[in-house]
Amino acid sequence: MRSGILIVLMCGLAGCATQSSTVLEPVEQQPGWPAPAEGGRYPSQSPTPGDSGTGYSAPRTGSTSSTARRPATVAYSPSSTGVTAADALLREGNALHQRGEYGGAANNFERGIRMAPRSPALYLALAKTRLAMGDNTNAIQMANRALSLLPSGSWAADDARTEAWNVIANAREAQGDRTGAAAARQKAKGW
């Protein structure tokens, strides 16, 4: 009821595009925007810190007035994914890996990735497990994915980068790619 009145008011203010011959063409102000269904407003979403499941909560620059937003520099921790339950899966997965139960370990890490899909720690762990399983191709790719997610500028992240490059080096070696392995080792030292 109330929303109905609201729509009428909004229509009035916007000159009710549907009445006139100008039909809602490309959206400018959305004059004839369809009313939210079920008689209400769309739930207006607002993010909360820690949403991104990155293992770090990035203070938002929030300057939506400016074109640009620089993500803040962030910290990395090898044991933290940003989601407590995913941390537990990471721990359990590492324990399984230690015992040589690679299938179970990989399963844990993938479950963790669903909860914290942008956690470099989980991808790195998965890369190591794939390497141990002899799945060199996927080990390399997972290590690359971890590298793409690692933030710059922290000792812990640099250590993780070294580990990731070492995974790549070992996997390439196992694939018989000596040159590629050497290049990756060089990268590993570079951090």
Binding site: E25, V27, P34, P36, S44
Partner: peptide, 26 residues
């Protein structure tokens, strides 16, 4: 247009999902 058609469905759907912000690693 894309904006006056398909985008409406996308808007309504995404407004009801539990979203995470898009913050890429620089």
């Amino acid at each position: 247009t894309g904006a006056s058609g398909a985008l409406r469905v996308w808007n309504q759907t995404f407004s009801r999902l539990a979203l995470q912000p898009l913050e890429l690693n620089q």
